[in-house]
Design a protein around this nucleic acid. Sequence first.
DNA 1: TATGAATGAGGATTCATTCAT
DNA 2: TATGAATGAATCCTCATTCAT
Lengths: 209, 209, 209, 209
Amino acid sequence: MNTGEPGSFGQLLRDMIASGQISDPASPKGRLLAAAAKLFREKGYSGTTVRDLAADVGILSGSIFHHFKNKDEILFGVMKEVVSAMNASLVARLALESESRGRVKALIEHELTFIHGGPGNAMSVLVYEWRALSEARQEQILEQREAYERLWQGTLEEAHTAGLIRIEPDVLRQLLHGAIAWSANWYKPGGDLSMDDLVERTLTLAVQE
Amino acid sequence: MNTGEPGSFGQLLRDMIASGQISDPASPKGRLLAAAAKLFREKGYSGTTVRDLAADVGILSGSIFHHFKNKDEILFGVMKEVVSAMNASLVARLALESESRGRVKALIEHELTFIHGGPGNAMSVLVYEWRALSEARQEQILEQREAYERLWQGTLEEAHTAGLIRIEPDVLRQLLHGAIAWSANWYKPGGDLSMDDLVERTLTLAVQE
Amino acid sequence: MNTGEPGSFGQLLRDMIASGQISDPASPKGRLLAAAAKLFREKGYSGTTVRDLAADVGILSGSIFHHFKNKDEILFGVMKEVVSAMNASLVARLALESESRGRVKALIEHELTFIHGGPGNAMSVLVYEWRALSEARQEQILEQREAYERLWQGTLEEAHTAGLIRIEPDVLRQLLHGAIAWSANWYKPGGDLSMDDLVERTLTLAVQE
Amino acid sequence: MNTGEPGSFGQLLRDMIASGQISDPASPKGRLLAAAAKLFREKGYSGTTVRDLAADVGILSGSIFHHFKNKDEILFGVMKEVVSAMNASLVARLALESESRGRVKALIEHELTFIHGGPGNAMSVLVYEWRALSEARQEQILEQREAYERLWQGTLEEAHTAGLIRIEPDVLRQLLHGAIAWSANWYKPGGDLSMDDLVERTLTLAVQE
DNA sequence: TATGAATGAGGATTCATTCAT
DNA sequence: TATGAATGAATCCTCATTCAT
């Protein structure tokens, strides 16, 4: 991913770090969140202990609570940042596409790239550990998550109107979401199937030729 | 689900109970497994305590260990029985279809019916709590699970040869598996979208008309 | 051990069984006590579960409580029977010896024979699991145990008066008791050192030649 | 016990604490080990709960696992430290004696002093709770324990060669070990029999006048 | 007398969290 | 900010004991 030119994903991240929306991955808090995303994904939220987390980052368990009030807040942090980033990044990505098929492809490519890229752990956590988050905090995430879903919804509706897709946008979104999220559990980059291939195959499901 | 005529799913279950492959849902062990499937799905394996489980069934926590040596064995029981049932039931289902499109539809319909029917909790657990199962037991499940996957694989390969599906059978299987499994998290029977509709929509993803 | 002639140890046991002082080793209760003696010695009283015991005898744990009110009563049974047997058997043994050195030797030989013979497990339990017995029952055992100790004490006092032993009878008794009981942990019959040798060596400690 | 002059037992202990071979009795770990030795001796290892132990030291049961990974490791700690101390202390004690009878007396006096002194609880545990220690850890203790036994063995062999003792050194060692260890269960310092008397009596068993 | 499912108190151990240093 | 000992509630599991069959 190009990190040099303005408007790129790398630049976008830097802007978000600068504005405090997501934490600097070099800071203690950022390293903690990255480790949490990795561990929560591998072993689940309940299955990961605060000590596992501390050990992974190289600090002692007591020190974690200088950065987060409790374990739930760590999960919240992981989810909040990935939702923000996904949102911002999809907005930026869609801005580059005007034509319907390209926009649908952008949705799919964007979500797959996210899952198999740096924020992949966090996104898996967002999807598969949702029930572990306290309800109070679920609501806070939901707002941003819905903004992201509206981007999908709007784009798919255009495509539906254009006759590009055959099934109801909301149903299609869910089917694609499941298919894409699950790819975290089987797709290995670097094998026979390139990421572009995977995007293409997934797009094939969605649209008529 | 028809439970009357021989060869039906209900009959198949009764045969499997009689042969000891799956436990009688009225027996203590069967009730425990059903409750475990429900709770493990709702709160995760780690998030479910042995006391939760006992309370749900109406016994004391210590009594659980009369039926299962430890908690891991409960998870194993849930998974083993659902895999057996899925296997047997898909074999029976496919035997009724000879033509390619019908067989692909049978695969999808079968898996969706399973997820949203009685064994749905157990199947969600099978999919989403896989990592929580001890490795030794994962292998035991894997054998039966692979038999099931071979049924999918074979059927999709026929369809691919017949030109009915456009993308590689193994990739398609994974995409469909994700899409179908995820439906447990959003699809509610009894709403606008009937189960038949959902099957039809999912089939639309897979095959060219 | 000769079991034929009247007055022998075997006969003595049969008489005690007939009179109900000790249980028939072929009866369920007798088999339970023998197994308990073995297990309590090997793993300690606390370390032995009622299930271990049942398994060893080939019954189910619940059935034990038809024979004994609780676990403590099993320990009590083991101790009570061995104390009775020791008592009766030492009385019989001493009756055969009139001269002082022979009587001291009889004490030692008797205790060593007991420890390394059939009732050895029970006697080890009596010595090393004493604290595990409820205080109420300790008192009941103590009476018989004291009778046994009086036999030792009286015999050693004679020997002391006769100038055969040099140190105070009560101190000597304790030293010999420790030495003899501990032999259960190292002496293996059938090795280089015969039981007669061991008796002789122990006697050498006690008496001046 | 003299703790002032260099070369004394007190000094030896301080050196061992300083070098980390045994834990400071004022430290949490040291207090835990002392309490464990006391309780394991009084109630046995299986009969002592981790809660008993915590209560005795005045902490909560969970806190114990800050200092020891599990209960077995506590038993191991008790045994390891007492074996180290016994070893070092016997080496020092024997260095002061050159003549054979004095050396045998030193062996006996040393072991009795140990049993009835500060480390007595730990030594009783070492002897009577051996089977409760996991086999893996038994082996670790055994090495040091054998070094201690070699000191006995060597000294008794000299005495045997010198005609001072009449029975085989290895048999004598076992008989004396049993006699001495058992004294923990009956001998009370401060009664009619002084410790010096007890040493003298035990020595009388071992050697010809 | 034997069974075996169930009990419920108690076992060792884990773990998020606190707090003095 | 970081430490690490301590907390105490909760966890999985064990076990002596009961009881309907």
